[in-house]
């Protein structure tokens, strides 16, 4: 059996009278790519905060073994550092200066921001900032990536391109990934497993597995079918319920 670096056992979380999770259990295997979709405010960010250790459940337990990096839903770049300096944070563990430099340039090229290396976050657009933050998380060595809607403010085409890049990079450097997203297509294109969360208190109301290798075409039948299945779960495709 595969190792389970991320484990939640019968966890409950409440903020005052707002009950977010009741008895939630979830296992994520080594190297697995899990996408989490669900209505706004249902507890997706809270789930990532449980994994990262930022939040402790009031009941139950959470296990997270490995180095974790998170891409935050709201500006997580350090505003007093340039785009390049922010990305270089991800490469801190590399001992060779030359190697750090090489990988930094590769990252900048990947997110197409070579010209903006010396710009500060407030001088970049929202989508550019997201790209820098994603590059920072992907740079260098880590075991677990927690991504909180990392593509949400990108234009459609850049989003598609970055999804493809993410898939390619994970091919080279396999990592355990939890991706929170509003975009069902994105989930279907990237994930090995899609978790559909219900309204609060959130349960996993549907689990879909995808076996197709990445990168996947958006128009591949299995991707399209998965999108339909998730939409049906949200009650947005009445004629397809039960697919």
């Amino acid at each position: 059996m595969k190792a389970k670096p991320l484990l939640i056992k019968e966890a409950s979380v409440s903020f005052g009278s707002v009950e977010v999770f009741r008895n939630l259990s979830l296992e994520i295997s080594q190297g697995e790519f899990v996408a989490v979709v669900g209505p706004s405010g249902c507890g997706k960010t809270t789930l990532l905060n449980l994994f990262s250790g930022f939040l402790k459940p009031s009941l139950g337990s959470v296990v997270c073994s490995g180095r974790v990096r998170m891409v935050y839903q709201h500006d997580g770049l350090l505003p007093w550092q340039t785009a390049a300096q922010n990305i270089a944070l991800g490469l801190r563990d590399l001992s060779s200066e030359a190697e750090r430099k090489r990988q930094l340039n590769e990252m900048l090229r990947l997110i197409n921001l070579e010209e903006f290396a010396g710009h500060y976050p407030h001088q970049l657009s929202g989508g550019m900032r997201q790209r820098v933050e994603l590059a920072r998380a992907l740079a260098g060595d880590t075991d677990i990536l927690l991504l909180d809607e990392p593509f949400s403010s990108l234009d459609y085409l850049t989003g598609l391109r970055l999804r493809r890049e993410l898939a390619r990079m994970l091919e080279e450097l396999p990592r355990t990934v939890v991706l929170v997203t509003h975009d069902i297509e994105e989930a279907a294109q990237l994930a090995d497993r899609i978790l559909v969360l219900s309204d609060r208190p959130a349960r996993i109301c549907r689990e879909l597995r995808m076996s197709l290798p990445r990168p996947r075409e958006l128009t591949h039948p299995q991707v399209v079918e998965t999108v339909h299945a998730v939409l049906a779960e949200f009650g947005l495709e009445q004629d397809k319920v039960g697919v």
Binding site: F54, R69, W80
Partner: peptide
């Protein structure tokens, strides 16, 4: 608080928290 969470993700030492997060953030 997100700056301190980032600092933890990227394994800043105690001294770096002061010199690379707190001081530049309040400057």
């Amino acid at each position: 608080s997100v700056y301190f969470r980032v600092a933890r993700d990227y394994r800043f030492s105690g001294l770096e928290l002061l010199t690379k997060v707190t001081l530049p953030a309040i400057a």
